[in-house]
């Protein structure tokens, strides 16, 4: 056997290491503010998870809301859900985007864990998610009563995150 062949595992590993390394570098960019902030919410026309009616961008307007991107395949969303229920109890309007998910599963989920959402937009292909620059679930956008995106949080909402995000949301009311 040629000794050079024995180096193959090492080379493959080095390549994988490189991917991780550069991947780590990419993560830092997530802390940059979303370019969407200050811009209107992207146009969409999507079905609602709960009852199947179709809504468009105009339906978002009227009052400030949190737009929460979630999915049943996302473990962090499960962890976040209880806190969303609390926020909803405080009267905060939350609109869900059920991202790259199955409507039936989503309905089961809402039945099992409670539904903090005013309604959920079903985005099975992730098209709206793409336009929003969704990085992974969960993500949450703050939109004002005009439907303009005012803030964004990547990762789960929890009492700590809400301290600053909630303040911003309160100012929009």
């Amino acid at each position: 056997m040629n000794r050079l062949l024995l180096f193959i595992p090492l080379v493959i590993f080095a390549l994988m290491g490189l991917v991780f390394w550069v991947g780590l570098g990419i993560e830092d960019k997530t802390s940059l503010p979303s370019p969407l902030i200050g811009k209107p919410f992207p146009e969409f026309e999507l079905g609602v998870v709960e009852d199947g009616r179709t809504l468009t961008t105009k339906d978002l307007q009227g009052q400030p809301a949190l737009v929460n991107v979630w999915a049943t395949w996302c473990p962090t969303c499960k962890a976040e859900h209880a806190f969303l229920n609390e926020l909803a109890e405080q009267g905060i309007r939350i609109i869900g985007i059920n991202y790259k998910d199955d409507v039936m599963k989503a309905r089961d989920w809402l039945k099992a864990y409670g539904n903090p959402y005013a309604y959920n937009l079903s985005d099975p292909q992730g098209k709206l998610g793409l336009e929003l620059g969704v990085y992974g679930a969960p993500e949450t956008f703050l939109i004002d009563s005009e439907g303009i995106i005012r803030g964004k949080h990547i990762g789960d909402l929890n009492p700590v995150v809400w301290e600053s995000l909630g303040k911003q949301f309160g100012e929009m009311q």
Binding site: F20, L24, P75
Partner: peptide
């Protein structure tokens, strides 16, 4: 699971990668 956890603490991430690199890379070498 959530890429964000890693970025929030790059010191740990880099340390882990270095350890994995030495351990796996060294043994493959």
């Amino acid at each position: 699971t959530s890429v964000h956890a890693f970025a929030s603490d790059p010191e740990r991430g880099v340390f882990i990668l270095a350890l994995l690199g030495i351990c796996v890379g060294g043994s493959l070498l």
